[in-house]
């Protein structure tokens, strides 16, 4: 859609007073993709969540990106509102960004390639950055990463952040920069809401979307920095670039504990949480 944003405004911005009045008159415009401040005022607050505990509320455009640094015990909910969101996520230890998501360990340590409820997102330092605490989608992928500028140029004609068909990596690069991080700080990312399965011969089979309205919840197990790009999955079979909004709400909740089934779901997981607890205890983080 091409909209003339200047319609009815041109020639009324000749003086500073007019320009200021024009700018102020725009303040209450509501659009599909925007953050809600304060977060407790979100028009889409999750049912059953005390709105005073919401710390982050935002609809990320399709395509778009966002990022945040969050306290331990924050519960983060992603929602694929229209069925064509794909949340490409990278998580870091907020205090030490060299510690970050390691997808090989995230799959190898639990002996499971497919992420779902109870799956830990592990760092390369043997600790749990976040846990997938709930999942109504079950269509996720930890093998295929994001699209690149080169791939999007070939497929869609453009892939720059400013284009209509930005590559996931270009968006993650910007999200990283906003948190003081660079290209070295982007390891392979995990994708939520678009599924891929491995056939016996190794072929990657697209299982796609679970449809609109599904959610995934993460729990931050330590203070984390999280980068999110919403862009089509690299194996998305649609010819056109199709990306719909991604809604995010985060609220103050509880970190995982030995009362949660995933804490002791396997000896590997129990030791991962034990390592995390050891780090937090020594660091003075409760």
């Amino acid at each position: 859609m091409i909209e003339d944003l200047g319609a009815g405004r041109r020639a009324r911005t000749r003086t500073l007073a007019e320009a200021r009045a024009d700018a102020h008159a725009r303040a209450d415009v509501r659009v599909e993709a925007m953050p809600y401040l304060p977060a407790s005022s979100s028009p889409y607050a999750p049912v059953g969540v005390d709105t005073s505990r919401i710390v982050w509320a935002e609809t990320v455009g399709g395509p778009g990106y966002t990022h945040a640094t969050l306290a331990r015990g924050t519960r983060i909910r992603f929602e694929d509102t229209d069925g064509h969101a794909c949340a490409h996520v990278v998580v870091f230890n907020a205090d030490r960004h060299g510690e970050r998501l390691n997808l090989a360990d995230t799959q190898k340590v639990p002996w499971q390639a497919y992420l779902g409820a109870g799956h830990p997102l592990l760092s390369g330092d043997g600790r749990v950055l976040a846990t997938v605490a709930a999942d109504t989608s079950t269509r996720h992928d930890a093998l295929c990463g994001v699209t690149t500028l080169a791939a999007n140029r070939r497929r869609y004609g453009a892939g720059e952040a400013h284009s209509a068909t930005p590559a996931g990596r270009e968006l993650l690069r910007l999200a990283a920069a906003k948190e003081g991080l660079g290209a070295r700080d982007l390891p392979p990312s995990v994708s939520f809401f678009k599924g891929v399965r491995v056939e016996p011969d190794g072929a990657l089979e697209w299982t796609g979307s679970a449809g609109p309205g599904v959610t995934v919840d993460l729990i931050a197990e330590m203070p984390i920095t999280i980068l999110v790009a919403n862009a089509p999955h690299p194996l998305d079979p649609e010819d056109s670039y199709r990306s719909t909004p991604l809604r995010i709400h985060a609220w103050t909740a509880e970190p995982s504990s030995d009362r949660d089934p995933w804490w002791s779901g396997s000896p590997e997981r129990a030791r991962a949480y034990a390592n995390t607890q050891q780090y937090l205890t020594a660091r003075g983080i409760r």
Partner: peptide, 14 residues
């Protein structure tokens, strides 16, 4: 290429 590298840290988990 999906098995990753071993580390002292992940050895403790595994």
């Amino acid at each position: 290429t999906i098995g990753g590298a071993c580390s002292k840290e992940s050895n403790t988990l595994r």
